[in-house]
């Protein structure tokens, strides 16, 4: 779970940030389905952690609902290099954009965060987004 004081320091209004506590990835996807159908949200973040990828049928349904209601669905996964050649196992073939993040300490209290698109159905892969952030309390 994200650490709420860090979100507050980020400028996010915690009072208007609903968090769904789901016992597993399947229930989380069902909750996302209900939220998408409402059309009340512009962005949904599914924190799946180390959980296995969602079933293809569920991905398909979420993708269809996201297009219908103009909602972005962001799935957060922790992947490791599972293949012998070091390439990561592809997950979420229906995803429009897939990115990998990395961070590097560049100064006493500054970290450079890089998001690299490994898949982008509209703009093509390879683009990167770089942002410099400060460390959390105790690391800056």
């Amino acid at each position: 779970m994200f650490y709420p004081p860090d979100f507050a320091a980020f400028g996010i209004d915690l009072a208007a940030l609903p968090v769904i506590h789901a016992p597993d990835a399947r229930k989380a996807a069902r909750a996302a389905d209900a939220l998408l159908r409402s059309g009340g949200f512009a962005l949904l973040a599914l924190d799946l952690g180390d959980a296995a990828a969602l079933p293809l049928g569920m991905q398909s349904r979420l993708a269809g609902l996201a297009m219908k209601h103009h909602t972005a669905v962001l799935c957060l996964l922790r992947q490791r290099a599972d293949r012998k050649d070091g390439r990561q196992v592809a997950r979420g073939s229906l995803a429009a954009v897939r990115g990998e993040s990395a961070k590097r300490r560049v100064d006493f209290d500054r970290f450079e965060c890089v998001l690299r698109a490994v898949k982008d159905k509209r703009l093509g892969p390879g683009w990167t987004h770089v942002e410099v952030c400060r460390g959390p309390d105790g690391l800056c």
């Binding site: 709420p4 979100f7 915690l14 506590h21 409402s38 059309g39």
Partner: peptide
């Protein structure tokens, strides 16, 4: 964005996952 529709979605989730399923941090 229809906030009432979002509230109805919360009610559905609460009915399925329990009353404490939808929360916010304070």
């Amino acid at each position: 964005r229809d906030l009432d529709a979002a509230d109805r979605a919360f009610a559905r989730i609460r009915a399925e996952l329990g009353d404490g399923a939808v929360s916010r941090a304070r």
